[in-house]
Structures are given as C-alpha cells and as structure tokens.
C-alpha cells in the first residue's frame, strides 16, 4: 500500500501528455479548426473517402486521440486511413450569438466539404461522438451529398429517454431562456457540476479505484489522461444551447421529424447512406435507448446498431475498445468504401 501511495505521489503536478498524434491545421474559422492527421503508414492502401471525426461541442477533441496506445486516431492512421477531426475550440463572449445552424450547417458543412477534398470520392465517412453524433445525423439528413457513410457513437437521438439529463431538461421549472440570458455562453462549470450531480460518489470511487491499481503505471497513465480530458471542458455557445435544449431535449423534434436546419427539414428517414449506431449499455449520459433510436428511423438499406457493454467514455478509449470496437469500425469503413468504389 505504501508503494502504491508513493507511486501516486510521484505523479502529482505532472501534466499527462494528451492528443499527441501530429496533425496540421488545414482550415480555421472563428474558434474552430479542422485538423488533418499526418499519415503514419503511407504505404498502406487508403480509403477513397477520408474519415472525419466530429466530437461533442462541450468536450475537447483529443478524447479520440487520448494518448499513444489509447488513440482511435493513431489506430486508424496505422491502417493507412486518412483522418481529420474538428476541434471546436473555446467559445468566447461574442459566441453567445452562434446559432445551432451556424454550428451544424455552416461550420460542420465547411469541415465536411474541406475534408472531402482529401479523398478520391469527394465524400467523407463521418463519425460523430456524443453531441457530435447528433450534429452529424442532422447534417446528413439535410445535406447528404458529401457523406459516404455515418457512424453515430453514443449519440443522443431520442431525447425523451429515461435518463437523468432528460428528466432535468423537461422539468417545467428549468428555464433555459433565463440561463442563456443570464450567462451568454453556458459555462462549462455549470454543465460539469450537473454531470457530477448525476453520481456524486463517483469521484470517491475513482480515488479508491486508482489507489487500488496505483502499482500499475500504464493504468495510471490512462487514468490521468482521461481525467485531464474530463476536466478540460468548454462552454456551450448560448443561442445554440437554447435551441438544442428547447427543440431537441424538450420538444424531441428530431425523432418527430419536425427539426429544421437552416430552414430545411431534417428527417431521419431521408438518410440513405450506410449508417452505424454504436450504443453502450451502461451509458448514463446518453442512454442506449436514446442512441438506439437512430437505426430504426433512418431510410438507409445498409444500417446496423452495435449495442456494446461499457459506459459513455470508457468504452471508446479503453484497451478493450482498441481490441474490439476500433478494429470493427475500421473494417466497417473498409467494406463500405469498397462497395462505394465498386458502384
């Protein structure tokens, strides 16, 4: 036990190195940037369509490139795939006026078109994680022309699920207008404390878990990297948040087919490209009921849902993911790319 404690103390004050895979900024607008990862295996055959990763607006992009050995990006690059990612950046006070359409249509649309220019097909394989998955779903429903396939990774689709967040947002006393008018951008501290309230004992459990495995250096590296990411959140642009909560969380417009992006209807049935929804059975942020609502509603002939064990973050970045989920995703893209090439 003493050795474990000493091992933990050695790490105090050291910042874990995260998001290390080399990338170039190929486009930048306002706060967001489009990053293109440098190929690590140029000899390997590539996909005709690059992969564009779309993270959540409220988390940093590097969760998908956490650290060497725990990076989906690194894994895909080793296979010779072209990978780009959106870094949404940190909104500042003036971004309170950014609307949902600005983010989901203008910014994501531009990123998709820029990313598509790096492939032979003129399209991209989109992967959206969490809220990023909601954005990619809405975008694909409205502007399918540049999308070769879509993966929604733990993406909320049906907002009237049985999760705690859904209950809170539908509370008649929850006044989103008051929050946006008072704060402008919704501060990350407010959102983080809401997530912590969902399981207040979690931090204590984490401390016990880390003490228990404090002899295991690779475990500690991964744990502190993930904690760094988990505490490195960004605020939500105010107007965008207002619409997200009102029209998606409270009115559930996406599954009802009533949501509109830049005035155009975003109907899930209009999505025709290959679709994969990955849901996690122990996800308490996006319950699998919510994420699983996508596949039955899209119009695609080629659609699948993988319902996997695990939680919202761990199941995406764990060692288990590197042996199961990542190779399966890579194979899923390879097959869709081959089918598209043959057509």
């Amino acid at each position: 036990m003493v050795k474990r404690v000493l091992n933990l103390f050695k790490r105090v004050g050291k910042k874990p190195a995260v998001g290390l895979t080399p990338a170039d900024v190929v486009y930048r607008e306002n706060k967001w940037r489009l990053l293109r990862y440098r190929p690590s295996n140029p000899m390997h055959p590539r996909l005709d369509s690059p992969i564009l990763l779309v993270p959540s607006l409220i988390n940093r992009h590097y969760v998908l490139d956490l650290m060497p050995g725990k990076s989906l990006v690194e894994y895909l690059l080793a296979l010779g795939y072209e990978v780009l990612i959106i870094d949404w950046g940190t909104p500042t006070a003036e971004d309170r006026f950014l609307t949902f359409d600005d983010v989901c249509d203008k910014a994501l649309g531009r990123a998709v078109r820029k990313a598509a220019s790096y492939g032979k097909s003129g399209k991209v394989h989109l992967l959206g994680y969490c809220l990023g998955g909601t954005l990619t779903t809405i975008y694909t429903a409205v502007r399918p022309q540049y999308v070769a396939s879509m993966v929604a990774l733990a993406a909320p689709i049906d907002f009237h699920d049985d999760g705690v967040l859904a209950v809170w947002m539908q509370n008649p006393k929850f006044n989103v207008d008051a929050i946006v008018n008072g704060y402008g951008n919704v501060p990350w501290q407010l959102m983080q404390s809401a997530f912590q309230m969902m399981r207040p004992t979690l931090n204590l459990s984490k401390a016990i878990g880390v003490l228990d495995k404090a002899w295991d250096d690779p475990f500690l590296d991964g744990f502190f990297a993930l904690e760094t990411w988990g505490n490195d959140n960004v605020s939500f642009p105010g107007e965008c948040f207002r619409r997200y909560i009102k029209e998606l969380y409270q009115q559930n417009q996406l599954v009802k087919g009533e949501f509109r992006l830049s005035g155009r209807p975003a109907r899930l049935a209009d999505i025709q490209c290959p679709v994969l929804a990955v849901t996690f059975q122990h996800d308490n942020i996006v319950p699998h009921v919510s994420a699983g609502a996508l596949v039955p509603r899209v119009g695609s002939a080629d659609k699948q849902q993988w319902d996997l064990p695990g939680g919202h973050v761990g199941a995406v970045v764990s060692r288990k993911a590197s042996e199961g989920l990542w190779p399966a995703l890579a194979e899923w893209w390879r097959q869709r790319d081959e089918v598209a090439r043959a057509q």
Binding site: N171, P172, K173, F174, N175, A178, I179, N181, G182, Y183
Partner: peptide, 8 residues
C-alpha cells in the same frame, strides 16, 4: 429549477 431561474 426555480432557484436557478431566479438567480439567472
């Protein structure tokens, strides 16, 4: 909820 709204 009411308290948060009032503060805001």
């Amino acid at each position: 909820g009411a308290m948060l709204s009032a503060m805001m």
